[in-house]
Design a protein around this nucleic acid. Sequence first.
DNA 1: AGATATAATGCAAAAAATTATTATTTAAGA
DNA 2: TCTTAAATAATAATTTTTTGCATTATATCT
Lengths: 157, 157
Amino acid sequence: MSNIITNFNDKTVKYTQLLSDFKILLKKNSLKFTIQREVILETLYKSDKHLTPESLHHLIKENFPELKTGIATVYRTLALLEDSDMVTSLSFGAQGKKYELGAKEHHDHMICTTCGDITEFVDEEIENRQDSIAHELGFEISDHSMQIYGICKNCKN
Amino acid sequence: MSNIITNFNDKTVKYTQLLSDFKILLKKNSLKFTIQREVILETLYKSDKHLTPESLHHLIKENFPELKTGIATVYRTLALLEDSDMVTSLSFGAQGKKYELGAKEHHDHMICTTCGDITEFVDEEIENRQDSIAHELGFEISDHSMQIYGICKNCKN
DNA sequence: AGATATAATGCAAAAAATTATTATTTAAGA
DNA sequence: TCTTAAATAATAATTTTTTGCATTATATCT
Ligand SMILES: [Mn+2]
Ligand SMILES: [Mn+2]
Ligand SMILES: [Zn+2]
Ligand SMILES: [Zn+2]
């Protein structure tokens, strides 16, 4: 019997919901809803991957060529989304920061150093233990990030 | 009763031991032992902090001004040390990659988002659970990294 | 110790990544 | 539709990291 939950691919949040949250957030801060911002959110959602600002920008240029989105806008929007906790950034291995929509449930990452494949998972036992540790050290947790590196099932063969 | 171990400040490995390991490693790979490499290792050891290539370079220029160590050498040596598993890199928050000597025992990090203070810890329960998870998913662990973010005891007051 | 081979270094240039500037466009609200 | 304030693209400027190369230093061999 296991506590592990994997498969976060089936999206737990509908895009329309996400979009509406985004709009509310923008309004609350007197910010404007733009096509660029929508496209960035949508691309993050559809791709369902861990993207660098660069790779996200590429995807957008590919899928929305008529909209000449600048890289600076991607950076600015990612920063905005991260500040508002709609996306999370993490960095594994050599490459730089990667972003993913934080709309799915919290999860940690298991990364294959051979093929680069990423398995997302959550384990209740670890989550609980983290809380206990923080409590014992008088620390008030806001967040955490955990990555396990190694060789995946496939690559072992 | 707690499983948590903190205080990794009392160095578990003597510098002379570390240095000798380094020399053996270099010889094994037909690489040369240089003053720059020694100074980089020594500075990492003495500082006992999480340093960016930039801050490490600054420390070295301060403490060994006669040796005009170039930043490129710092980058190259950090890469070498990381490849050989003598240092570990991790990246929290906004700033870039930070390096620390991996000679001390493995540990994870609890980072105060207010004052930036870092508490290092290890929890056996979590370590074990990570192994179980990997096993269940057919994954062969080589390493892991875990950071807990929040507000520390001091900053709560 | 001196000669030889080869790796490492510093410096400068190049490349990559990120941030700031600004004129122009666009969204939101009246 | 008109007004105004924010966002954008484009570009420049910074910052960070990597690379090329001429010179220096290290290890090994006589
Ligand atoms: Mn993920
Ligand atoms: Mn540490
Ligand atoms: Zn794999
Ligand atoms: Zn603090």
